[in-house]
Design a protein around this nucleic acid. Sequence first.
DNA 1: AGGTATAATGTGATGTTATAACATATACAA
DNA 2: TTGTATATGTTATAACATCACATTATACCT
Lengths: 161, 161
Amino acid sequence: MSQVHAFPKPGHNHARCTADALRKAEAVCAARKSRLTEIRRDVLETVWQSHVPVGAYDILSHLNENGGKTAPMAVYRALDFLMENGLVHRIASLNAFIGCAHMGEEHHAAQFLICHSCGTTAELESAPLKRALTQAVSERGFTIDSQIVEISGTCPHCRAA
Amino acid sequence: MSQVHAFPKPGHNHARCTADALRKAEAVCAARKSRLTEIRRDVLETVWQSHVPVGAYDILSHLNENGGKTAPMAVYRALDFLMENGLVHRIASLNAFIGCAHMGEEHHAAQFLICHSCGTTAELESAPLKRALTQAVSERGFTIDSQIVEISGTCPHCRAA
DNA sequence: AGGTATAATGTGATGTTATAACATATACAA
DNA sequence: TTGTATATGTTATAACATCACATTATACCT
Ligand SMILES: [Zn+2]
Ligand SMILES: [Zn+2]
Ligand SMILES: [Zn+2]
Ligand SMILES: [Zn+2]
């Protein structure tokens, strides 16, 4: 069941990741009666080109590769939509965005492992960590609204190399 | 000993916080043979004007209040120095900076509680949380270099009000 | 179908945060 | 004192993000 998610491997079949993600996104939006419009889908697809967080202006460049004329605002609006619907996360320490690995699974925590060698970023999603955090915070009389956990280091694959 | 740090109270004697911070900073720099130059000290003092994280350009404005002509670069360089020496932290989710509450005490974690009502931001510094984090991360074969934990919510004082 | 409200997108300007590149000045040790 | 590393000055620009307002598309009611 609650298996520890493996860190994305260098040579994995990423086309499947992307396809899965887009399919799930369609389902989530259908369920929520949110409209996954063309630009939103394009942005999501761009974000899913890899497991490396991508900047808003990189997304923009990608969209405009073939002579498009999309403006930054459109990208940010699409990203806002995708974040509101739990399809994309923002990595604050990088000012960049990454596809959510747990669409629709209502995961509360946004915890990330960021390899500063290959850039690959994965969701940690540790329940014990979440508990420790909740405990520590409530001990201090603080009420949580949102949290950011971003851990930078070296991923297993880069470490092996 | 390892007492739970109280969240800064609204009416506390903050002049003492500032004075303590500057004194400790002098000591830390002396010990490390780092030079706390005028601009670095000015930036540190500005950062310590409150327990609310302050943006680089706000610091800049403050420095230039009386006709100064400091450039952004100077502020960022001072902030880099202060961060390298553990005197200031960056709050990634706010693009802002705050004085370190544990100067010289070699605390490894940078964990913050951010009240989005009053802006007051305090270091959490929870050992159990740090352990849970280390555990969860190493289970996944990841090697930590640095971490960011930023929790937004309502502080005890704002909650009471 | 037509009308109307809401949602989404287009567009241009601007705001905010951060760094590059190179010149000059200062500290400090040999 | 003189060389070298460190710190600062200066100008420009990169990178990230939002405002404000116009236009278009879609939903949904009559
Ligand atoms: Zn993949
Ligand atoms: Zn890696
Ligand atoms: Zn204080
Ligand atoms: Zn508060």
